[in-house]
């Protein structure tokens, strides 16, 4: 059997895959091709999440499942099986045997703090880049003002005996 499009509008589509995790597995895709989560424009992503949410509720009502998962496998290491970005919706039942869990280990304080620092450093770098970009934009927008100021200054300097 082929994958089937069961719902669609001008921006996104809902696929019923012929090969999936379980019966009821749905996949939401944008019609434009994006590879990873970070490529997807905010508006499209918002719409996809909203559709995913409604579909989860629909699965709950129509299939009688007792839970649902939403899963984004962003990148090959995360198990991304589609070449392009998509959101998986999965109906769940008690003891359904589906393995969607991970082993946990208690993190130590030092490692946690180190990770927080890495986030903070990254945020700082981003803010600095944004600031530089903003300043550059301002400079490009007002060359005349600077020129005038410069002329005034150079004239003042010339006047010094």
């Amino acid at each position: 059997m082929d994958d089937q499009v069961i719902m669609k509008d001008e921006e996104i589509a809902v696929i019923l895959p012929a090969r999936g995790f379980v019966k009821g597995h749905l996949i939401i895709v944008p019609l434009k091709e994006y590879v990873i989560l970070e490529d997807v424009p905010d508006n499209t992503l918002m719409k996809m999440f909203q559709a995913a949410n409604k579909l989860s509720a629909a699965l709950f009502e129509t299939l009688g499942c007792t839970g649902t998962n939403m899963l984004v496998q962003n990148g090959a290491p995360a198990g991304q099986f589609n070449k392009l970005f998509s959101i998986n919706i999965i109906p769940r039942y008690e003891n359904d045997g589906l393995k969607l869990e991970w082993e946990t280990k208690q993190a130590d304080e030092e490692t946690l703090n180190k990770t927080v620092s890495l986030f903070q450093e990254h945020d700082k770098t981003l803010r600095e880049k944004e600031y530089v970009a903003e300043q550059k934009k301002k400079t490009e927008e007002k060359p005349d003002e600077e020129e005038v100021e410069e002329n005034y200054l150079s004239k003042s300097i010339e006047r010094i005996p």
């Binding site: 991304q80 039942y93 969607l100």
Partner: peptide, 27 residues
Amino acid sequence: KKVSEKLIGALQAQGTSVFIANGLHAG
């Protein structure tokens, strides 16, 4: 999306998983 971007930027993660569980049986 922003948190995923930060994980990639700050921790050099090669990818991210975004996982939501609604209900006990979903984990």
